[in-house]
């Protein structure tokens, strides 16, 4: 159920993001979702890809600072209040969200939300017990 997210340290200057995407293109790695957190000087690129282990290795070999983090991918109803219902559950259970990013999936009629939380196992349990559809990793990698 846990999804491997690839995070890459990038300096805030032109061409750095392209250097990552070019490498992934060359290695035929497909990006499923991404988000960038940025500050004045640097950014952190977070990626969900179809082949995370390979992506990690290629990026590391190319000299990037890169890490693998486990995150949760959750399907939520794509309608007003859809995200709110999920977040309310997390709030009730006192699960702190580090960050999240969302995208609309190609299949089904749900939106997919990637959650980064500190207590991953607890979050997973809570969501399942509340009937929230936590997607398994292969499903996300192969969307």
């Amino acid at each position: 159920m846990k999804i491997k997210q690839i995070s890459v340290f990038l300096e805030n200057k032109s061409g750095r993001l392209a250097a990552v995407t070019r490498l992934l293109a060359e290695k035929v790695i497909n990006i499923r979702a991404l988000s960038i957190a940025d500050t004045t000087d640097f950014g952190i690129l977070r990626l969900i890809v179809d082949k995370p282990d390979e992506a990690y290795r290629f990026l590391k070999e190319a000299g990037f600072t890169v890490s693998v983090t486990e995150v949760l991918g959750v399907e939520m109803p794509d309608r007003p209040g859809g995200l709110d219902s999920g977040l309310s559950v997390m709030a009730q259970e006192d699960i702190n969200i580090e960050y999240l990013y969302a995208f609309i999936g190609r299949s089904g009629n749900g939106a997919i939300v990637i959650f980064r939380v500190e207590e991953l196992d607890k979050a997973l349990q809570v969501m399942k017990s509340r009937g929230i559809n936590v997607l398994n990793a292969d499903k996300i990698y192969n969307l």
Partner: peptide, 15 residues
Amino acid sequence: EVSESLFSDKVRRLE
């Protein structure tokens, strides 16, 4: 230079 051991996917940590 940021090495792998210093890096975090969280902005807060790097800041």
